[in-house]
Amino acid sequence: MNVLVMGCGRMGAQLASLLDAEGHKVTVLDIDAHGFRRLPPGFGGIALVGDGTSEDALKKAGIEEADAFVAVTQGDNRNIMAAQIAKHIFNVSRVLCRIYDPLRRDIYEALGLEAISPTTVFAQIFKDKLLSM
């Protein structure tokens, strides 16, 4: 699979290296090259500096050839905007994004965006762990 990951924070870097290790073609996009230090030394994918909410930067990062797009920057709204551009402008077949705010996640899920809220997921995991002790 050809995957474009937007945001090279802990989550983005981890995801990119997992995909890379499994032999997928990965491109990571971040507005700050500093984030790329998180990629493992043997990372075989491409790391590019660019703004994932900009159509031009996405094109440069090869979004037109991507099978999947993942938006995991720190900003909910950046992720939402980039994911919608990937889905509706570039017709990427698989688009996934992170939205911390659970309410906002629900709204965009209803609008057809596939989104995960770490807030909801982790609260649930912690609760389950606590109660199973």
């Binding site: 909410t53 900003g75 909910d76 709204n77 950046r78 939402i80 905007m81 980039a82 919608q84 906002r104």
Partner: peptide, 8 residues
Amino acid sequence: DEDEDNLV
């Protein structure tokens, strides 16, 4: 002055 905020 942030486009993504205005969109959302």
